[in-house]
């Protein structure tokens, strides 16, 4: 079950690599949130406890409902154009992503020989982190940067479930809160920037330097 979810997660990453639309990013984020929630719910099928539901429930509320809505709202309010404005060709980006996937999966399968990790969730998490960073590096739009950051964070989440199946619940919730605050701040910053500059490229932010 965990493997299937992880592979679905990876497929969503591939979709991110080729789609040119901002809206698709938000949809993928929502999809990944659902996947992670299911992943966390799996162990409770056999053993249910109210306390353990807190984390999946918060995750669901924040990642599937609040954050995507918030981002959509920002897109609507600020009238952001729907393309993502890549700095390299989409095809090259896809090649880069595929290459890094190969390296990561190979590396994790070698690692799994000696250490106690679940290969596929581990590799998917790792890949999500990498893709998140790639998105930040190769895209110009600030709102896409926020999405890239969220993908990265999802990757860390998956990573956490793969490495230690019982990461302390408080830490996970803390991370969630962190992400929420960061996205919130980004939204405020975007609003401010929009009133000062025309457009939402990071290239414009050059003018902010001292």
């Amino acid at each position: 079950m965990q493997n299937i979810l992880s592979i679905l997660f990876c497929l969503s990453l591939f979709y991110l690599a080729v789609t040119p639309r901002v809206k698709a990013y938000v949809a993928v984020l929502r999809f990944q949130g659902i996947l992670l929630t299911i992943l966390l719910m799996v162990p409770f099928v056999e053993q249910f406890s109210v306390f353990a539901v807190i984390l999946p429930a918060t995750l669901f509320i924040i990642k599937v409902i609040i954050i995507p809505r918030y981002i959509n709202k920002i897109i609507l309010e600020l009238d952001i154009k729907r393309t993502i404005e890549p700095t390299i060709q989409q095809f090259n980006f896809l090649l880069l992503v595929i290459f890094s996937f190969i390296v990561i999966f190979l590396a994790s399968s070698i690692l799994s020989l000696t250490t106690n990790i679940e290969t596929i969730p581990f590799a998917s998490g790792f890949a999500a982190v990498t893709v998140g960073i790639f998105i930040i590096i190769f895209r110009k739009k600030l709102i896409v940067h926020v999405c890239g950051f969220l993908v990265l964070e999802n990757g860390i989440f998956l990573f956490g479930t793969a490495v230690a199946s019982d990461l302390p619940i408080m830490i996970e919730i803390g991370v969630l809160l962190d992400v929420f605050v960061v996205v919130f701040l980004m939204g405020i910053a975007l609003n401010r920037i929009s009133s000062t500059f025309e457009g939402f490229d990071v290239t414009i932010l050059r003018r902010l330097k001292d």
Binding site: L111, I137, V202, K209
Partner: peptide, 26 residues
Amino acid sequence: YTDIRYYIAFILIIITIYSLIAFLWS
């Protein structure tokens, strides 16, 4: 540079080098 993307790329390169070293070491 003034663009944050370069910094993130630098970080990525450094992390890759470190993890390669750690990977080959063990």
